[in-house]
Design a protein around this nucleic acid. Structure first.
Lengths: 138, 138
DNA sequence: CTTGACGTTGACGTAAACGTAAAGCATGAT
DNA sequence: ATCATGCTTTACGTTTACGTCAACGTCAAG
């Protein structure tokens, strides 16, 4: 059961939509996790009556959330980041604020980049030494 | 108060050592954090009587721990990683096991690398759009 | 119309990663 | 000798990020 709810059916102008179970399955998390992110305000799917209806925008945000998690950011911080992307950028002051935030984020990410590059380099060096030891045993 | 305990004093053959407060200060964490890592077996400083004595090796490990944290790894996983570096590599089976673990770690790190690169790229793109908007206002 | 299959809202539980006292040693300075 | 500092352990508290019921709604299929 992969794919949107309205697959092939009479979907006139509206976009494709998914249920919470489909979204959870697609992203490899539980429905509880998805609802937790909603509780924290990281995603806000529409409601068809009582049921949640997820659209492409929600899936995009969920992707950003999970990547942020893999990078070790706390959910609250992730919220401020993705909210930034959707922030109104009308007034000059707003835009300047956003650009400032971007710089902060980039500093953070640059540190992460350095960390992961260093870690990979060290791992490579360590592997080299291990292979050396292995050769000596041969 | 930066520098080892035995700075300048009669430090014959022994290496430089630090107290828990100095180590915590140097790495920007609390002493409670340092002791927590010890509780989990990530570092094991010597004891001079009852007091903990930290040496260069402990500081190295602490650095690895904190970098691992910045990369979003849980402490338990970090422990297995740094233990790997100190693991005995005498027998061939041991070495092959270690090399296998290295591959797993690298896969993980490669994902992190991709994540952070993607994030940086998106942030750059977003900044470009913001600057565009800003120019239009001028 | 009842049975599932899914969806919903609480509400409590839990594991990780520390924070925060509380209360006791140890040691150099006064 | 005692006083202040810094280190120690013990132990409970807190925050984050969900897991795990419980109890109920809803809607298509039999």
């Amino acid at each position: 059961m992969i794919g949107p709810m309205t697959s092939g059916a009479a979907t006139r102008t509206s976009e494709a939509t998914w249920t919470i179970a489909q979204v959870a399955e697609d992203f490899g998390v539980t429905h509880r996790t998805v609802r937790h992110y909603e509780d924290l305000g990281l995603i806000s799917p529409e409601r068809r009556g009582t049921q949640r209806v997820y659209r492409r925008r929600d899936r995009t945000r969920l992707g950003l959330i999970l990547r942020g998690k893999r990078l070790g950011f706390p959910l609250e911080e992730i919220r401020t980041i993705i909210d930034l992307f959707d922030a109104p950028r009308g007034r000059r002051t707003q835009l300047e604020y956003v650009l400032g935030q971007i710089d902060e984020r980039r500093a953070d990410l640059d540190q992460r980049l350095k960390d992961v590059q260093d870690a990979i380099a060290e791992l490579g060096e360590f592997e080299r030494r291990c292979r050396e030891d292995l050769d000596k045993l041969a």
